[in-house]
């Protein structure tokens, strides 16, 4: 029996709006994040991801208000990320109702933060967010600030190090594939998922149902996140789960 795969809508947020871009840029407003989150909860999402995708650029964090509102009537886990800089930021998001907090930029600048955070809040609620861009056949570089800033860090090595420091999960976004709807970066997902003992959420590139099979069966993803196909009603969560079950992928049945 394979592990049960989670299907996770990802909602990128800018200000009060749900937005969607390509390669994490070229942003377009989609609607009210709470309305979409509610729809996905009712549609059978296993979790929800909220990412404030400009927070780290402008150094502010308005997500906690949106989170507070969302958790009033959504009873599944919510991972929140974007602009998380300190233990206090994490505390604030958790107290607002987030179950897990995803950290990228601040973790790279100060790996000590993820160590302290996982000791204080538990590994299970500290998610490392990696934005990776392919450099060669089998090398990827970690970026920060939504794929704008190079770090020089090898994404695979960084993932391993962050797990040693205590992160309990990895949200792995391919900058090359994000928003393209051309499928996930299978090599990237597989390389990292088979290198670390913690679950990996694959992100970036979902366009067709077959992409789910590929990223789970070949890419060894533990969870699959998607945005565009859901926001623009190209597929429903029900379609995705039904397809997964047909492909003998173990998902939570609705």
């Amino acid at each position: 029996m394979t592990n049960r795969i989670r299907i996770i809508p990802r909602l990128d947020i800018k200000g009060p709006n749900l937005i969607k871009g390509i390669h994490l840029e070229g942003l377009r407003v989609v609607g009210d994040p709470n309305v979409f989150a509610k729809k996905y909860y009712e549609g059978g999402a296993d979790e929800i991801i909220y990412m404030d995708i400009v927070a780290s650029l402008y150094g502010r964090n308005n997500l906690s208000d949106i989170v507070k509102k969302t958790v009033e009537d959504i009873y599944i886990p919510i991972t929140v990320g974007g602009g998380v800089r300190s233990i206090d930021d994490i505390q604030e998001l958790l107290r607002s109702g987030a179950d897990k907090v995803a950290i990228n930029t601040a973790a790279i600048h100060s790996p000590e933060l993820i160590k302290q955070a996982s000791r204080k809040f538990g590994s299970q609620c500290i998610v490392l967010s990696i934005e990776a861009k392919r450099k060669s056949e089998s090398k990827w570089e970690s970026y920060t600030d939504n794929g704008r800033e190079k770090t020089g860090l090898d994404a695979v090595e960084w993932a391993k190090k962050a797990v040693e420091l205590g992160v309990g999960e990895i949200l792995l976004t391919s900058i090359d594939k994000e928003g393209t709807q051309k499928g996930f970066d299978i090599d990237l997902i597989k390389t990292i998922s088979t290198s670390v003992p913690v679950p990996v959420i694959a992100s970036g590139g979902m366009g067709r149902l077959e992409n789910v099979r590929d990223v789970v069966v070949e890419g060894k993803a533990d969870a699959v996140s998607m945005a565009h196909v859901l926001h623009y009603s190209k597929h429903t969560l029900r379609d995705i789960k039904k397809y997964a079950i047909d492909q003998q992928i173990n998902v939570r049945d609705l």
Partner: peptide, 18 residues
């Protein structure tokens, strides 16, 4: 335990629906 009963390794933490 980081290995299941059939010797297959699995991810820890145990995260998800069961």
């Amino acid at each position: 335990p980081s290995q299941g009963s059939e010797g297959l390794t699995h991810k820890i933490p145990h995260i998800g629906w069961n």
